[in-house]
């Protein structure tokens, strides 16, 4: 067992970064050599260091999205060597360390690319389409203060655990970025399944899946071709089984909504 690590061997890499001043401007790759890189450094810290160097030289730093730097906020969004969030399994870009690279590597860094995620600048894209999908139905309608006691409705542990699996989605958009069709099915499936698996989510289950899928389609994402690139890059390893589940839910909801008796009552006006 090696308890004390020996002095870290520093190495050099080249960052080949997509630079684009804005959505209307043309973009291009620019090479940034980085010497004396510590393997314990995170990839985003390398970008910090490169940016400080650019600032000192009077050049504009590389814009990249980041925040929590611990893999939970879902802000970071680079495609590294063709793979959203880079090499590694079940991590976000911020959890990528340079020990994943070797001396002399050319690391190609691109933004998440999708029509539904328009580019803002350099490596930053606009993922507000995800918020719109959520606003369409990603909730259980319960006003604050009206909830019954939390233990009044037991939830089978199996369902609760599965709902939690789906709920781990951090909304980073890697699924979209990895899918050749820029499909958001894994994201939407995770959201639909999280709420649909819980008893609290049943009253709005049908309307939720219909509304969320419709908003997803309107946002310009592609369709799913069942290649599962999404779940392969998901930082939370959310299973594509949830997509199958959503397909089923959607079809059920669609048919149910069409074959339900039509209410002719005027609704329940008080007074």
């Amino acid at each position: 067992m090696v308890a004390e690590k020996t002095a870290k061997k520093l190495f050099s890499v080249t960052l080949r970064v997509w630079r684009q001043a804005g959505p209307a401007q043309a973009g291009r790759f620019v090479d940034y050599p980085a010497a004396n890189v510590n393997p314990d450094m995170s990839f985003l810290e390398l970008l910090d260091v490169v940016n400080d160097g650019l600032t000192v030289k009077g050049e504009e730093p590389i814009a990249f999205a980041h925040d929590c730097r611990e893999g939970i906020c879902g802000t970071c969004s680079c495609t590294i060597n063709g793979k959203p969030h880079g090499p590694g399994h079940g991590i976000a870009t911020c959890q990528l360390y340079l020990r994943s690279f070797r001396e002399g590597d050319v690391i190609v860094v691109e933004p998440f690319r999708a029509r539904a995620f328009p580019l803002v600048k350099d490596l930053v894209v606009d993922r507000s389409a995800f918020d719109k999908i959520q606003q369409a139905g990603g909730f259980i309608s319960v006003r604050a203060g009206t909830a019954p006691d939390a233990n009044s409705a037991p939830v089978p542990k199996r369902d609760a655990d599965l709902a939690m699996d789906a709920a781990t989605c951090i909304g980073c958009g890697a699924c979209v970025a990895a899918c050749k069709n820029s499909s958001a099915m894994l994201f939407v499936a995770a959201k639909v399944s999280h709420l649909g698996l819980l008893p609290q989510g049943q009253p709005e289950r049908d309307s939720r899946v219909l509304a969320m899928v419709q908003t997803m389609d309107e946002a310009g994402f592609g369709s799913c071709t069942n290649q599962y690139e999404c779940s392969a890059v998901c930082p939370k390893l959310i299973s594509h089984d949830f997509i199958a589940r959503m397909n089923r839910d959607y079809v059920k909801a669609l048919f149910k909504s069409r074959f339900q008796p039509v209410s002719l009552g005027g609704g329940g006006g008080a007074g």
Binding site: W18, F29, T79, N81, G82, K83, V108, E110, R113, A114, R115, A116, A178, K180, N181, S182, S183, G220, F221, G222, S223, T225, N226, Q227, Y228, E229, A232, V233
Partner: peptide, 29 residues
């Protein structure tokens, strides 16, 4: 229709093409 829509959903291709697990059969459907 789907092929055209799916292509349109990714107007700018990645410079580095990387495949994680998609089978060749699925990519040439």
């Amino acid at each position: 229709k789907l092929t055209l829509e799916n292509r349109a959903a990714r107007p700018e291709a990645y410079a580095v093409q990387h495949v994680n697990r998609a089978t060749l059969a699925s990519r040439v459907m």
